[in-house]
């Protein structure tokens, strides 16, 4: 019984052919994920609008320490990022994030960011 079932499953009947590929994937709308450049620009804008960073040059490679932000400031910035992108950064991740690059990478990984 199992052998016959495995034969049926292994047969070509259940394997998607190249011509069927288009029908096997749901494609109701275009990918809603944000682009890398948009994420970077928005994060830089949020950080550069923070009181203590005003007037300093902010690039994606700078760390919060280099900008003169302490741990509480970093938490402030992360909450502002959360609000702007409509996501919630888990505590383990928030403890780990210490630079703009890490923030951008986390948002890239999050599909619900908008």
């Amino acid at each position: 019984m199992l052998r016959s079932l495995s034969k049926v499953l292994n047969s070509n009947m259940f394997r998607p052919t190249t011509s069927m590929n288009g029908y096997l994937y749901r494609n109701y709308g275009s990918d809603a994920r944000l682009g890398d450049k948009e994420i970077t620009d928005r994060v830089i804008e949020i950080v550069s609008n923070y009181d203590k960073v005003l007037g300093k040059t902010v690039s994606p490679s700078t760390t919060f320490k280099e900008l003169g932000l302490d741990s509480l400031d970093a938490a402030d910035v992360l909450v502002a990022v959360e609000e702007d992108f409509g996501i919630e950064i888990p505590d383990e991740e928030a403890d780990r994030i210490s630079s703009l690059k890490e923030t951008i990478d986390f948002i890239k990984k999050t599909p619900t960011a908008k």
Binding site: L72, A75, D76, V79, E82, D91, A94
Partner: peptide
């Protein structure tokens, strides 16, 4: 313990 305090701070602001 420090991380716990930072978590509390984030929750306060949220």
């Amino acid at each position: 313990a420090r991380k716990r305090c930072l978590k509390l701070y984030r929750n306060c602001i949220r």
